[in-house]
Amino acid sequence: MTAHDWYLKNRVGFATRSLEEREEAIFADHVSRCEECRVAVAELERDLAWLPMGVASVAPRPGLTRSIMERVLRRPRTRWWQWAVSFAAAASLLLAVGVWTETRREISALRRALDVRQGRLITIEDSLSPILGAERVLQKTIKGQGSEGGVLIFYDQDTQRWNVVAQDLPPARTGEGYQLWFVTSRGLLPGPELRANGSRPTLLTVRPPAPFGDTIGAALVVGPVGSDRPRGVELARFKLSARTRRRKTGAASPGDSAGPESALLVLWNRSD
């Protein structure tokens, strides 16, 4: 008896699927390699093709044909857990996108706010740099008619300008105003009028009259504006130190001999 005899004896069993599962697997492996057995099994299947019809037919229940049609033709049914997994995945994705979008929006908003604040800080630092770099800064509180304000007076050696920061100055009387006067060796020389009675801080920056070497200080006077001499009340007087005066004299240049220049700047908005 050869090894192949076992397959010969079990062809019918394989063709009719009555072998044990283990035997069936062995035979299937053999059939895939043995042409003789493959042909023999195919002939057996063909000869016995109608054998299943040896049992009596069973009348289908009403509606079975329609039910089979619907189940065959419809798309594969999705199990509840497949829906759940899909839903959970979609929900997670949406949540992740939402969190990502919201986080990105918050980051962008924070970044913009930071940029704005950094810009303001730079502006403030830039504005304060002359004050911080000044050798002396005069601060004076000014009261009158139920209100209270103040001024800062300092000299910027880098730009060689006098600077006055004023805020909330009490309104001057009719026909009068706040005026800056330069203190020189020849006496007081008129400077620009200081119009700063609003709530916003204002900066007056002004180049002193020539020759610069004569200017040794500045004074803020409230009174009639436009006269050659101060006729009102002197509110504050600022004098340069001897060292600054020496340095200022040496830094004077012919190009600076032009008349007084002034500028009024709004420093910052209090509402911020």
């Binding site: 299943p52 019809m53 049992v55 009596a56 037919s57 069973v58 009348a59 289908p60 079975l64 044909t65 089979i68 049609m69 065959v72 033709l73």
Partner: peptide, 30 residues
């Protein structure tokens, strides 16, 4: 799809008979 319906109509009684004999369960046979 009409061809499928015709095939089902003709063969289903024999398939049901065979499947019920094997499975002894009408629902599973269907």
């Amino acid at each position: 799809e009409q061809a499928l319906a015709e095939l089902i109509e003709v063969v289903t009684p024999w398939l049901l008979g065979m499947a019920q004999a094997l499975l002894s369960d009408p629902d599973e046979a269907e």
